[in-house]
Computed example of a mutant assay.
Amino acid sequence: MHFEFDQSSPIYQQLADQMEEMIFSGLFPEGDQVPSTTQLSQELHINPATVLKGMNMLVDQQLLEKRRGRGMFVTAGAQEKIMEKRKEGFYQNYVASLIQEATKLGITEDHLLTLIQRGYQNGNTQN
């Protein structure tokens, strides 16, 4: 388990994002317990309140659940929730702007689909 922090956003947000990635990648499998707030704050040398704020973000997103006296655990279906969130983000961040730019360039839907198919056939986006 390795965390990296920078100045791009608050530490609690970066912690939540990195823990989400660890859940998505299976490092923290569904049903498993995640490290405690105390463990993380000591290991990462950050304030326990900062760790708790990041972890509570994941609780609010229903990716982690608190079990009284036992700790926090990855919820069933957490990976699927992350996948759906990322798919929607992909649409918002890439597809919508792709369509907007294609429209400006006069690229029809059919031609855009052809270009996308060409990208898949070539296995990259360099062409």
Rank of each mutant, 00 (worst) to 15 (best):
L58I: 06
Y94H: 13
L113S: 08
F28D: 02
I11Y: 04
N124L: 08
L112H: 08
H111C: 02
T125L: 15
I11L: 14
Q126S: 15
G106P: 02
T75M: 13
Q7N: 12
M1N: 11
Q13I: 10
V51Q: 02
I107Q: 03
L112I: 05
A76Y: 14
Q42C: 02
G89K: 05
D32W: 13
V74T: 01
I116C: 04
I46W: 08
A78M: 00
G119L: 01
Q121F: 03
E65V: 05
M83E: 07
N93E: 14
H2V: 10
T50W: 02
Q92I: 08
H111Q: 13
S9N: 03
Y91N: 02
M22W: 10
K81A: 07
Y12K: 14
N127Y: 15
T75P: 03
V95Y: 14
E21Q: 14
G77P: 01
Q117A: 13
V51A: 00
T108W: 00
E109H: 11
N122V: 08
P29A: 03
A49I: 07
M19Q: 09
L113Q: 11
K53L: 09
L44Q: 05
T75F: 00
T108H: 02
G123I: 01
M19L: 07
S97T: 13
N93Q: 14
Q14D: 02
H111T: 12
F90Y: 11
K66T: 05
M22T: 04
T38Q: 15
T125M: 13
N93R: 13
E43M: 09
K104N: 11
E30I: 04
V74W: 09
E84P: 00
Q62W: 08
Y12C: 12
I99A: 02
V74N: 04
Y94N: 09
L40F: 10
V95N: 00
E101V: 05
E4L: 13
L115G: 01
Q100L: 04
G89W: 02
N93A: 13
T38I: 14
G119C: 07
N127M: 06
R67P: 03
L105R: 10
I116K: 04
P35C: 04
L105N: 12
Q121H: 07
D17E: 12
H45N: 14
R68Y: 13
N124T: 10
H45D: 12
F3A: 01
Q126G: 09
I99P: 01
M55D: 08
F3Y: 15
D17N: 07
R118Y: 09
E109Y: 10
D6K: 06
T114A: 10
T114P: 03
L63Y: 14
Q100A: 12
P10C: 04
E43N: 15
Q42L: 11
Y120G: 05
L112C: 01
N47P: 02
Y94K: 06
G106W: 02
L44D: 06
L112M: 07
M1K: 15
N122H: 12
E21D: 14
S41H: 09
R67D: 03
M83V: 09
E65G: 01
L64S: 08
E4C: 05
Y12W: 11
M22E: 10
L63A: 00
